[in-house]
C-alpha cells in the first residue's frame, strides 16, 4: 500500500472528486498559482484550470459567502481557509448562512460545501495563528465537523465531505501535512460520524481527534510499559458525534481521559464528559479527566509554547489520575 503524506491524501481526495463531479471546485487564498500555502493543492490548477481552482483576494468573509451562495445554486465548493484562524473573519457566513439556510428555507436550499484548512497551533506562530476552532464550530446544529488524524482517514473523510449535502468543517493541521501513512490506491470512502479505535486496550480509554490522537498513541505506549492497557478512540467527527463508540468504550474500560486541542472552557471535551456523565455515570470507576491546551492565548516563545500545548507526558499524567495512581 502506498505510504503518502497527509497533504497528498487530501489532494487525492479533491482531485478524485473533481474528476467525478464537474460541479466541485476549489477556492481560496493561494490555492491555484501558488499551489496552496501548504502545497495541498499542488498541481491542481494545471489539471482543472482557473475556473475550478480559484485564487481569491484576501476576503475570507466574501469568498466564504460566495461559496455558500454557489452551493445553494447547484455547485459543490471546497473553500480553503489558509488557516482556520482566518475563518473567524468569515464566521458570520459559516454560522448564519451555511449552517442555517437549509432550515430557514424550509428544506428548499441545501448547502453542500466544505470549508477546509489548517486548524490549531503549529510552531511559534503566537496567538492569532494558533487557534483551535473545533469547539466553536461543533456548537452549531446544521454543520458537520470532521477532524482526521491520519492520511487514510483524511482522504476517505474528505471525499465523503465533498459528497455530503451539508456544510462540513474539515479540520486539518499544519504540523500534520507532512506526516505519512498508508493509503490504498483504490477508491474508498469513510462515513462521517463514525469513530475509529486506533488502539485497543482494557484499563482506560483515551478519547481524542485530530493531531492529539498521536499524543494519545504515544502515551498509550508509555502506559503499556507500566502495565496499564490504554485504548485510543479517535472520534474523527465531532458532529455528528459517535455516541455509541464513546459509550461502548466507557462500558469496556470504565475510565476515560478526553484529550482536546484548544481551550478547556466550554470545549468539546466538556461536552463529551457531560454526555458520559448523563448517559453512563454508573459505568464509571473514576471521574472523566480532560487534557487541553492551557487557558491562555498561545505565546510565541518556544518554552512557553511547550507549556501550553498538549504532549504525551500530560496525557500519561491524566491517565495516572483516572487510574488512581497520581
Amino acid at each position: 500500500m502506498p505510504n503518502i503524506a497527509m497533504r497528498e491524501a487530501l489532494r487525492q481526495a479533491m482531485v478524485e472528486e473533481m474528476r467525478r463531479d464537474p460541479t466541485v471546485f476549489l477556492m481560496g487564498e493561494e490555492v491555484a498559482q501558488y499551489d496552496g500555502a501548504y502545497k495541498v493543492s499542488q498541481g491542481m490548477l494545471e489539471e482543472f484550470g482557473p475556473d475550478r481552482v480559484v485564487d481569491t483576494p484576501i476576503a475570507e468573509n466574501g469568498f466564504a459567502g460566495l461559496g455558500v451562495g454557489a452551493a445553494m445554486a447547484g455547485m459543490r465548493p471546497i473553500i480553503e481557509f489558509m488557516t482556520f484562524n482566518f475563518s473567524l473573519v468569515a464566521f458570520d457566513q459559516v454560522i448564519n448562512s451555511a449552517a442555517k439556510v437549509y432550515q430557514m428555507s424550509g428544506g428548499q436550499y441545501a448547502c453542500p460545501i466544505v470549508f477546509r484548512g489548517a486548524n490549531g497551533h503549529a510552531e511559534n506562530l503566537a496567538a492569532q495563528h494558533s487557534t483551535s476552532v473545533d469547539s466553536l464550530y461543533a456548537h452549531f446544529p446544521g454543520l458537520k465537523v470532521v477532524s482526521p488524524a491520519t492520511p487514510y482517514d483524511a482522504k476517505g473523510l474528505l471525499k465523503s465531505a465533498i459528497r455530503d449535502n451539508n456544510p462540513v468543517i474539515f479540520l486539518e493541521s499544519e504540523l500534520m501535512y507532512g506526516w505519512k501513512g498508508e493509503v490504498p490506491a483504490e477508491e474508498y470512502l469513510i462515513p462521517i460520524g463514525k469513530a475509529d479505535l486506533k488502539r485497543d486496550g482494557d484499563d482506560l480509554t483515551l478519547i481524542s481527534w485530530g493531531k492529539p490522537v498521536h499524543h494519545c498513541l504515544k502515551a498509550a505506549e508509555e502506559l503499556a510499559k507500566e502495565g496499564i492497557s490504554a485504548q485510543v478512540l479517535d472520534l474523527r467527527s465531532l458532529r455528528p458525534l459517535d455516541h455509541d463508540a464513546i459509550f461502548n468504550a466507557v462500558a469496556k474500560t470504565h475510565r476515560v481521559v478526553v484529550v482536546q486541542e484548544g481551550h478547556l472552557f466550554a470545549g468539546v471535551a466538556a461536552e463529551i464528559s457531560a454526555r458520559i456523565m448523563e448517559s453512563c455515570f454508573d459505568l464509571l470507576d473514576a471521574p472523566v479527566v480532560r487534557v487541553t491546551n492551557r487557558d491562555v492565548p498561545q505565546p510565541y516563545a518556544t518554552n512557553l509554547e511547550k507549556l501550553v500545548v498538549i504532549d504525551p507526558a500530560r496525557v500519561v499524567e491524566a491517565a495516572h489520575r483516572v487510574m488512581g495512581r497520581a
Binding site: A64, G65, G69, M75, S97
Partner: peptide
C-alpha cells in the same frame, strides 16, 4: 432565494449564486 437577517451578508451569497 431568500431574505436574510444579517445586514449585508446577502451580498456575498448573491455573488456566489451568480458564480454558479
Amino acid at each position: 432565494m431568500g431574505g436574510y437577517g444579517i445586514v449585508g451578508a446577502q451580498c456575498a451569497l448573491g455573488t456566489g449564486v451568480a458564480w454558479s
